[in-house]
């Protein structure tokens, strides 16, 4: 499964939304209705899925689905 697909799956699961609603440019808070603890749970799920660490400061900058995907790809490559 690609990073995109996996991230989509995590977001759909954690935020309880349908995958039709989910666009790359969707903002977690404004468009998908996430609160601060939902964001923390999303970050935790991504950290565990992709075996990376996303510090709290960085996490605050990942506002959209695409931003999360880009960050994960960049950091997986860095690790690889």
């Amino acid at each position: 499964m690609s990073v995109e697909e996996k991230v989509r799956e995590i977001v759909v699961d954690k935020l309880g939304i349908s995958s039709d609603e989910l666009k790359p440019e969707s903002k977690f808070v404004e468009d998908l209705g996430a609160d601060s603890l939902d964001l923390t749970e999303l970050i935790m799920a991504m950290e565990e899925e992709f075996d990376i660490e996303i510090d709290d400061e960085k996490a605050q900058e990942l506002l959209t689905v695409q931003a999360a995907i880009d960050y994960i790809k960049a950091n997986q490559q860095a690790a690889g």
Binding site: S36, L37, L39, T40, I43, M44, D56, A59
Partner: peptide, 12 residues
């Protein structure tokens, strides 16, 4: 308290 960080560590 840094709520989000504590949340993360508490669960794990």
């Amino acid at each position: 308290m840094e709520g989000r960080e504590v949340f993360k560590h508490a669960v794990r």
